[in-house]
Design a protein around this nucleic acid. Structure first.
Lengths: 237, 237
DNA sequence: CGCCCACTTGAGGAGTATCAAGCTTCGTGG
DNA sequence: CCACGAAGCTTGATACTCCTCAAGTGGGCG
């Protein structure tokens, strides 16, 4: 486990007045009121229970949110990418821990800077709604899908340029429907995301290879030979 | 299945001007810009995929949110009570269905009425953050807890006057720690909430009775003989 | 080159699901 | 008032998925 803000690089700028009416989110995030953090991969941003004085937007990279049970069982409760916002608990303290999956750039944001503006609030609101939708989908996965369906769903989620649920639609008669994806998460992280064990994830991926659904071009590169076919086995269609 | 707005009773009031600055949520919800809906139990408020022109606050009662897989598997993704807000999807259409668990009174709210005011937005924001916290807890339950722990967690959640995670704390040396709770959900609903089958839920409740953790005073009334003890078996402590 | 870590594979078993009866409870109507 | 039926709940027997424990295997890096 890496510690808080190791390998971090805070860019300091001159302070500026508070939000003007109608300021866009993009302007706000680029303004001096947000600090940039450059973090190495597998860096903990905060732990569950830490006081939440500020929150974050991902500028580049990817972040994972997770919770631990007292006996050490872990559940990953969110996978976030550029544009996503995290670190806003309902109460005073963080309700989950967060860790970078790859080298990432985060924007640290003061809560009160956002609370003053309708436009900024609305943007945060929209981010929260997307996360709620993702969490509900994930509840279906964890509560009702088989191990095979979970892994298939996970792989679908990793396919670039496809929103969740967008697979197999909007791509009129492409003969060969291949996709190459880079797996940045370890087997343990995937397992903790899918509510499975590392062995089960490994076995199912091997099984998919044996069946010809997947080809491992390199260590961390998987090629899905028929995206549509795999998607149909994810339990969603 | 009851249909949309069966047994509903819309109270009409005179229209009123849009939100003034600094209007509180309580004022807003009581104002003429929200319509009251009185719904019987087990009434569907909306289905997944329905257009989301307005959202709701629960004034009285309880509502369950759920999603269905194409083959009929169901997962309950939210249990809501008075003060909770629902029916706000990230996109245009509802990402889950909603159904009353008991006779309920809902306030129907136009999205644009809230979007104009910082104070109202902030209130909705806070509601969303609470739901995100609940969804994350639920992901841990679904992904990492045993069937016994899930049922124990569920029963803890139903104990009146105790926030989630509040059990066993803040009640200094109460000798007998009993709690009586009314179970308004059917076994099927509980099972779909916990990601189990109806038989497993039934077996575990029977098991808890056999062990003396529970006593069924009446059909829909369960008495937990030792809340602390059961809580310790929910996987959270 | 060899160690270490992450991943893979195998054997066996625990925990839930499934299928199939029974059992309560409650509402209905004779 | 009680017989009847239906729906929801409980229980049992069995199957199967996934976990646990244990032993390999392979790639990256000093």
């Amino acid at each position: 486990m890496t510690t808080l803000y190791s390998a971090c690089d805070v860019s300091e700028k001159a302070p500026q007045p508070a939000a003007a009416g109608g300021e866009t989110w993009a302007d706000f995030v680029r303004s001096a009121r947000t600090k940039s953090l450059r973090l190495a991969e597998h860096t903990i941003v905060y732990y569950e229970g830490d006081p939440a004085d500020r929150f974050y937007e991902i500028a580049e990279g990817a972040v994972m949110l997770f919770k631990l049970l007292p006996d050490g069982r872990r559940q990953v409760v969110g996978l976030l990418g550029p544009g996503d916002v995290f670190g806003l608990p309902a109460g005073e303290d963080h309700d989950s821990a967060s860790e970078t999956l790859v080298p990432s750039v985060l924007k640290a944001i003061e809560r009160r800077d956002v609370e003053a503006s309708v436009d900024l609030q609305r943007h945060v609101n929209q981010c929260l709604l997307r996360q709620i939708a993702a969490l509900r989908d994930h509840a279906v996965l964890l509560g009702r899908k088989s191990a095979f369906e979970r892994v298939a769903s996970y792989l679908m989620r990793m396919v670039p340029n496809r929103g969740v649920g967008d697979h197999c639609r909007g791509r009129p008669d492409v003969g060969v429907d291949e996709a190459v994806l880079r797996i940045t998460m370890t087997r343990q992280e995937i397992a903790d995301y899918l509510g499975l064990t590392i062995e089960t994830v490994s076995r199912i991926i091997s099984d998919m290879k044996r069946k010809g659904y997947l080809v491992a071009d390199r260590q961390d590169r998987l090629r899905i030979t028929d995206v549509c076919h795999l998607c149909r086995q994810s339990g969603m269609h």
